[in-house]
Amino acid sequence: MTESKEITYIKPGGAIAALDLAEIWRYRELLYFLTLRDIKLRYKQTLIGVAWAVLQPILTTAIFTVIFSNFARFDTGAIAYPLFALSGLIIWLFVHTSVSFASSSFVSNANLVTKVYFPRLIVPIAATFGTLFDLVFGVIILIGMMFYFGVAVTSQILLAPLFVVLGILVAVTFGTLFSALNVRFRDVKFALPFLLQVWMIASPIFYPTSLLSEKWRLVFALNPLTGVIEGFRSALFGSAFDWTLIGVSVGSLLFFMLISLVVFKSMEDSFADVI
């Protein structure tokens, strides 16, 4: 029986530990329950929770439509402006909500962090997953709108989930990064809303990237959301994929994932002491 016993080794921190995916897998039930808790608390408590998730994309789309298709008149090609805006918005709103939610996840779970061991990465991931319902509601609204506008879907739509997954990865990446920074630097709380605002303007949510020159398009593609949103739209509405743009965005996403992991791993050992 002694052979099969698991052995826990306790060593000083310091070196950036490898990302222990096996450990996270072992704690998948905790991830599941934390996610479930967040979902329940978000949507169960009040009707507003659900209503908010539905109303936010609809109202924002309406406002964008009034402003940008009547006054600014962005050329969104064959895609009706409300659909164009909504498809970008549901990704953005999800990223926005989950990054803000995840950024405070350690602070709001301080009692867990100081009293129990588990792979710390679970906290921001659960917080991100906890807002997934926003995305689900958004997709439902989007599908309804697509029927309403009579969009002819092509086989490209099969790639849509890929971009949704990339969108989730963007949310996890930045949620994790800000959650770790927030433990140490409480001014993240003040800086984040501003950063998110800039990020939104820098993402092709209410304007198409076709407005930009070729060179600027690639600069904008450094924002991982640019490729995700553009790719998502191409998949939905059957327009040609801009693989260069998507490639740059995915590369940039990988870069940010690495940064986020390095920052997180270098800080996680001290969470229980600092929080």
Partner: peptide, 22 residues
Amino acid sequence: SRITKPTSGRASISGRVGSLLE
């Protein structure tokens, strides 16, 4: 309980650990 890491030194525990700090 692996909530925090030691500054130096090491330890090992064999078997499943359950810790109840609260």
